[in-house]
Computed example of a mutant assay.
Amino acid sequence: MSIIRITKQFNFETGHALYGYDGKCKNVHGHSYKLSVTVIGTPIGDSNNVKYGMVIDFGDLKKIVSSEIVNKFDHATVFNKNTPHIELARELEKRDHSVILVDYQPTSEMMLVDFAEKIKRRLPANIMLHSLKLQETGTSHAEWYASDQNPI
């Protein structure tokens, strides 16, 4: 049976600030993110299975990514909890804003590392996360590949 990669794209709006950064992104701002999630596996060969011919049902992949990432990050503001932004985060939370505190600098690169771990934990054993692409702007994106994580 062939190995197939499938990709699903997700969109969400998230604010963040990069503490200690020497450019404009030190200020609180937001992006319209596009996240492409690619998984790899063998299509189900059992013709009695309702998901016959699928690597994974796109709907099942959507449930995983939505619950782990999109539903949490959409219209939230992400701050590194180990910076003075914690004070701003607390104030925003008092005003009923959605805030996510992470233990990393909330760059696209580090968000991908976080997203990869969250998604991998939820995938069925026979499906592997192949890659992630997080588009931050129309001209800028970061990519994560499973093959890059354990180079031979």
Rank of each mutant, 00 (worst) to 15 (best):
N71R: 10
T137S: 15
D103E: 14
L123I: 09
K81T: 00
R90F: 13
P124F: 12
V102Y: 02
L129P: 00
K81V: 03
H85G: 09
K133Q: 13
K94E: 13
T139M: 14
L88Q: 07
D114Y: 00
D103Q: 12
Y145D: 14
H130T: 07
L112F: 05
Q135N: 06
L101D: 06
P84Q: 12
D74I: 10
Y145C: 12
E143T: 06
D114Q: 01
A116Y: 00
L129K: 02
E117Q: 06
E93D: 15
T107I: 07
L123G: 05
H85D: 13
T77A: 01
W144A: 04
N71Q: 10
T107M: 09
H97V: 04
M111C: 15
R122W: 05
T83H: 03
D103C: 10
K72V: 15
F73D: 02
S108K: 03
I86T: 09
P124E: 10
K94D: 12
L129N: 02
L134N: 02
H97N: 13
E117Y: 07
F79W: 09
N80L: 02
D114I: 06
R95M: 07
S140K: 10
S140C: 14
H97P: 01
E91F: 10
R122E: 08
L101R: 02
E93G: 13
L129W: 04
L134T: 02
P124R: 08
S108Y: 01
R95N: 08
L134D: 03
W144G: 03
A125Q: 15
V99H: 10
L132H: 03
S98A: 13
F115W: 00
H75Q: 15
F79E: 02
N126A: 08
R122A: 05
L134E: 04
P84Y: 11
R121I: 08
S98H: 08
N126L: 10
L132A: 01
A116P: 01
T83G: 02
V78E: 02
T77K: 00
E143K: 11
N126D: 11
L112C: 07
K94P: 12
S98F: 00
T107V: 06
V102Q: 04
V99F: 11
G138I: 08
E109H: 07
V78F: 02
D114W: 02
H85R: 14
Y145P: 03
T139S: 15
